[in-house]
């Protein structure tokens, strides 16, 4: 229970420990606490921002989907229109081509027929002539009757 120099020793020890804590203990731990506080605040702010951005993105996505749908509809209707056009065009083309083929076929047929007629005509003349010559070989004047036959052939 005596007050003695211990009191001075205690004051010195006290001062040293306070100085130590003030320099080497308190600041780093407080800095870490502050940093964590800041980190948490930043994290919360980021989360808030993220939520906001997500909302915006959702809204934008909705808009994009809406636009895409409209575009798709437009494209489909265009395609349908175009399809119809193509079908119509093909029909027209087909008709024209058909007509063309038909006319050319007709012309060919006519040509063939004419050729056959000519051939027939030329052959009928000679056959008839041959037959007539055989029948009338003796009594017919060759020259006079040829004129007659030619007149007949031209009439066919």
């Amino acid at each position: 229970m005596n007050l003695n120099a211990t009191i001075i020793g205690q004051m010195i020890a006290f001062a040293l420990f306070v100085a130590f804590c003030m320099k080497y203990v308190w600041p780093p731990i407080m800095a870490a606490l502050d940093e964590r506080k800041k980190k948490i605040a930043d994290g919360l702010a980021a989360a808030e921002r993220g939520r906001h951005e997500q909302e915006l993105a959702e809204k934008r996505a909705q808009q994009v989907i809406h636009e895409a749908k409209e575009q798709a509809n437009e494209i489909i209707s265009q395609a349908q229109r175009r399809g119809n056009e193509i079908v119509d065009e093909s029909k027209d083309n087909a008709r024209v081509e058909g007509d063309r083929i038909l006319t050319s076929a007709k012309a060919e047929i006519e040509q063939e027929a004419n050729r056959a007629k000519d051939e027939l005509r030329s052959q009928v003349g000679s056959v008839a002539l041959a037959g007539a010559a055989k029948i009338l070989s003796r009594e017919i004047d060759d020259k006079a009757h040829t004129d007659l036959l030619e007149e007949l052939v031209s009439r066919i």
Binding site: T6, G9, A13, F17
Partner: peptide, 21 residues
Amino acid sequence: GFWAINVDTMGMSIVLGLLMA
């Protein structure tokens, strides 16, 4: 008198202070 040191008080408090530090 005054110029004496309580060895136990000083020792224990310094040991505990060092433990804390």
